[in-house]
Every structure is written in C-alpha cells, then in structure tokens.
Write a protein that binds this DNA or RNA. Sequence first.
DNA 1: GTGGAATACGAAAACAGTTTTCAAAATCGG
DNA 2: CCGATTTTGAAAACTGTTTTCGTATTCCAC
Lengths: 170, 170
Amino acid sequence: MAPVKPKKQIDENLVKEKETAFAEFIQRKGLKTTRQRNTIIATFFRLQGHISVEELLNEVKKANPRIGYATVYRTLHLLVESGLVEERRFGDGLARYEGHSDVEHHDHMICLDCGEIFEFYNPRLEALQEKLAEENDFQIYRHRLELYGACKDKEACSHRKRKKVEQAAG
Amino acid sequence: MAPVKPKKQIDENLVKEKETAFAEFIQRKGLKTTRQRNTIIATFFRLQGHISVEELLNEVKKANPRIGYATVYRTLHLLVESGLVEERRFGDGLARYEGHSDVEHHDHMICLDCGEIFEFYNPRLEALQEKLAEENDFQIYRHRLELYGACKDKEACSHRKRKKVEQAAG
DNA sequence: GTGGAATACGAAAACAGTTTTCAAAATCGG
DNA sequence: CCGATTTTGAAAACTGTTTTCGTATTCCAC
Ligand SMILES: [Mn+2]
Ligand SMILES: [Mn+2]
Ligand SMILES: [Zn+2]
Ligand SMILES: [Zn+2]
C-alpha cells in the first residue's frame, strides 16, 4: 500500500507564534486570558485541515472535558476576528475553520466521494476575476471559489473514504 | 434621476414553457398535479432574481393565503430536482432560488452595500478552472464562484439600498 | 360520475447548527 | 486580596429547514 499523502508535520514554532499573536489580540481588545481559551487555541492550531466545531470540541475535551460548545464557538469567533483563522462553508451545513498558515489566500476543490479538500492558488485566476469585476464597475473585497467533483485517482480516493468510515465508526 | 436598470420584462411564453416542463416532470414521476403546486410555480417563474423561500411564500399567499411554508419548500425541492431551478447560497444563511433561464451557467458578484447581485460568465475563467482541476487530477462536476464587494457606482448603489429599505418598511 | 388507493396538504413539532441568557466562577489592575 | 469586569457552561432560545400526522385532494378503475 503506497503512502497516500505525507502528513504535514506541525511546525511548533509557528504554532507558538500564533498563540502569541492571539494573546496580543486579546490584550489589545482588553479581554482576559483564560485557561479555556488557551486550551482551545492550542488545540486548534495543532490540528490541520478544515476543522468543524464538533471536531474541535472533541479534541478540546481530551485536554479539558468541562469545556462546552459555547466557549468553543465564542473562541472561534475571536480567532476569526483576530484574522488568524478563516471560516469556510462547503455546503454541508457546518462551518469549518482553518488557520490560514499555508498561503495567504487559496481556493478549494472538494471531492464528493472521499471528502478530501484540495487547496490551490492561481494568480491568473485571481487576476481574471479582478478584470471581470472591473468590467462590471465592481470592487472585490473577497471571493470564494469552490470546485465540487471527484478525485480521478480512484484508488487513493476510496482508500481515504474507507479510512474515514473507520474513523467515524470509532 | 437616471434610470438605474431597465427591469427585464418577463417572457410569458417562456414561463408557459417552464410550467409545461414542470407538469411533464410531475407526470413522469407519477406525482399529482395540485392547485398549490401550480400556484407556486406560476408565481415563482414570474418573479425575477434570486428568490428566498420567504419572498416566494409572500407572493404565493397573495394568490392563495392558505398555502404554507411546507408546501413551498417541497415544491422548490421538486423544481430543483426537475432541473428547472437552481439553489444558491450567498452566505446570509438563506437558500435562494433562480430559474436558470438567462444562461446555462453563471457566477455572481454580490454587493455588500446594496445587496445587488450581478451575474457574469467568462469562458476563459471556466477553462482555467478546468486546467487547474486537471493539474490536481480532479474532475469538476460543478463549481461556485462568488465575488463579494461593492458597486463602484455609489449613486446607483445607494439608490438601490434606499429602495430596499423602503420596500422592507412598506 | 363514484370509490378508493395513493398522494399531497398545512399546522405544528422536530431538527441541526448556532447564538444568547444567566447565575456562578475566574481574571487582573489597583 | 478586593472588587469591577469579563468569562464560563448548561440550558434555553433562535433560525432556517424538514418531518410528522391527521385531513383533504387527486385521479385511475370501474
Ligand atoms: Mn483551505
Ligand atoms: Mn444567478
Ligand atoms: Zn476523493
Ligand atoms: Zn451596491
């Protein structure tokens, strides 16, 4: 069985940087540093991918089972407000969050079979959007581009799918 | 005051065509023709733009006040299933529906000030997406591209906004 | 036309994800 | 430490949508 995708290693230094940046944001806003917020952001930044609230809460509870939904939601809002995290919605009804560490901006391809989310960025695409906006006398603040479809590599795709089912089963 | 946008006239023939197409779909599926469904689709196809369920229900109630939410939701699902209508979500939490009459596929620019939705289509953009998918060994079934921003024509924009406020109040 | 099985309706309840409330607990500058 | 201010967690509320369930309508066979 070939290795599917070399799991990116978490860069602990980068995580620490983010934690500091968030702490500064909290200070700047005159808010308070709390055990719960620290746990939540420490957990979040050590996860990778596009994390749902439930996924995050499950992880957070491993460190502190008494933390509830409300605090996770509230902390995620703060993370978004701080600019360290972006909210995504891929049409399955739940919000997902990602620390935009990799690239400043990117778009997504979502496999409807295995659920894998591929990220991409293309300057020509971005430029073309700008040009089209220009033609319509429109100024873009932000955009979202999502390509829904399927992996062509069926083996890798079904492997991921299987793995996901196992994971869900516990 | 300059004319803002020449309101497209509804093409009654086209509407009748859609009504027929839906009737055929209903037959084909072995479902029943009902007063309510007829009212709802007749109303829907005579509205223009990106219609929310509530907007549609309000209009429908003018013809038959006894029709309820459930039936509107159910009929919209049928319309989508029939392929005559597409569901859109522009991030304000509500589903919107449009008969895709104008062009087979198009993308959207959404003004965050006045709420206006501009539609556009660009073959180069579509082709570029295909190329990027190809590079990722990915097959696109469908995509969504939304540009969020603001009209540059501030006068037209605020005129639309004002009108909308009036409408909401009235 | 009627009978009657199949389907659809509408009001209300249920649902899912998220937000808010509120009383108790934690934070932190003085 | 004090005490004003903020935060927390459980539960309630909220929002848009779906489902339920008893009644009403459709429509095919006769
Ligand atoms: Mn991403
Ligand atoms: Mn449109
Ligand atoms: Zn896949
Ligand atoms: Zn505008």
